[in-house]
Design a protein around this nucleic acid. Sequence first.
DNA 1: GTCACAGATGAAAGATATTTTCGGTTCGGT
DNA 2: ACCGAACCGAAAATATCTTTCATCTGTGAC
Lengths: 301, 301
Amino acid sequence: MTQDVKETFGSPGGSLAAKVRTLAPSMTRSMQRVAEAVANDPGGCAALTVTGLAELTGTSEATVVRTARLLGYPGYRDLRLALAGLAAQQQSGRAPAITTDIAVDDPLADVVTKLAYEEQQTLADTAAGLDTGQLGAAVGALAGARRTDVYGVGASGLVAQDLAQKLLRIGLIAQAHSDPHLAVTNAVQLRSGDVAIAITHSGSTGDVIEPLRVAFEHGATTVAITGRPDSPVTQYADHVLTTSTSRESELRPAAMSSRTSQLLVVDCLFVGVAQRTYETAAPALAASYEALAHRHRTNPR
Amino acid sequence: MTQDVKETFGSPGGSLAAKVRTLAPSMTRSMQRVAEAVANDPGGCAALTVTGLAELTGTSEATVVRTARLLGYPGYRDLRLALAGLAAQQQSGRAPAITTDIAVDDPLADVVTKLAYEEQQTLADTAAGLDTGQLGAAVGALAGARRTDVYGVGASGLVAQDLAQKLLRIGLIAQAHSDPHLAVTNAVQLRSGDVAIAITHSGSTGDVIEPLRVAFEHGATTVAITGRPDSPVTQYADHVLTTSTSRESELRPAAMSSRTSQLLVVDCLFVGVAQRTYETAAPALAASYEALAHRHRTNPR
DNA sequence: GTCACAGATGAAAGATATTTTCGGTTCGGT
DNA sequence: ACCGAACCGAAAATATCTTTCATCTGTGAC
């Protein structure tokens, strides 16, 4: 009946597997082979020397080291250490795993379970991969901003609106733009002390990059929320917040998991800003709550 | 406030600490110093090279290696790997100490962890509480609908738009309405064979109930997605999908968790409908993907 | 189709880290 | 004080990791 879907917090290997997925597109073929090997069997790889791993993946030592660097470690030695830790974690925490994709003939109960599980996974990965330094910088900029513009189209457009709505609720001046022309028109008005935020999973959505570029060139502080930290949008971003990229299937397109991931980042931004501006945010939140109360019919028992 | 994280010398670190205690008598003075350092701070020592650890303990590399051997490892390299694993385990052991609400003075890292955790919780609760019978009925209605209207205002409005976007992608005719007047105007057009969906957390949002009532009275199949299964909105709903209502705090208003919950329900609806109409849904999904491809700049390596 | 170029790749040289060797030192017993 | 045994660390030897650089491969321009 109701499957047990709790206890999935912080999937052991999630952090690294997610990193591999996020970075895979920016990797070369051989590096991908190495990354895959490492993600699939952290423990096994931890037991290998550079040379061993190079042979196993049919590449060279140099490539292994390059991959380690790309994954954020100073060198192979450190990757290996991290791998050992990961393996130990996996060992201790049982790895349940509903690995199967959602199939066309899955009963609805399974669909619910799998979707919930995958979204939980996405959240854990995102939280693990979020750079709190960058987040802090973005929060600081937002908290002190004269005004804030948020750009996003398609599914990301809704996330952009969500963020703008939230910021408005704590007394900030924020606006979301889905229309690329209006977005650029508005971006021209920004200047130092303003903040512009672009939300795009692929990081290559021209309609979103353009207004961010304009804002950037006019001196605004710019933030990019993207799943591809090496994508074009980051060129014009002072701060980059990375969302996780999870496995996608035909019935669960990327748009779905990227939205979950983006919303978590947006929530973090919101709470961060609310903390920093607590003096003004708290009364503003209360006020907006009050203002909406009369839109609700009296609630029956 | 930061949770108390007492060092519970449990099973994970016990193995090594115990070994040290057992073997200590048979160790020479310098080796004891090394063993002690390793037992006290596995993580810290894992970060050191032989030379580093030798200096730290005021001994030599040879002694460190000898100690490693005595502890049962082939050499220092392997001890170091084990140490890293141990540290990771200890680390993960203290993780689930996130029972507290988000506080104003929480560091950002905690905010991220807590938010992710709470949203995961919300997802699990929603999945557990979702009535698959009602869901199936709603999916059936959607799959066969001539057209579908989705109503939602405020935060729920974004969810409504998300659902409409998704349904459009698989070739259905769907529209989201945030403007209550336009929503009612549109609802009047609905008739048997059409579907109207109202999304409201409180279930008492007049602006959303009204169009649903009109749709209901005109013979459309009506669905309510709400956190209050006993609220006014359900009066006019043929099928009720319940979202979970989780604890809210000042810094994490209800709107935030209800959104997560609503989106999961919406995703389930979407996937359910996509399954039932797979023949037409799959090509439609592919087509919409294709159509958007050219909006993305080519990605750099 | 060919050419030129940028980037990817691996072999080997170079730098570090680990292990072993070996001689000096300490300490207890006589 | 002397002897022997165990302890210890400096430095050589080895293994491992990192960097460099020449070659190769795929891509786009013409």
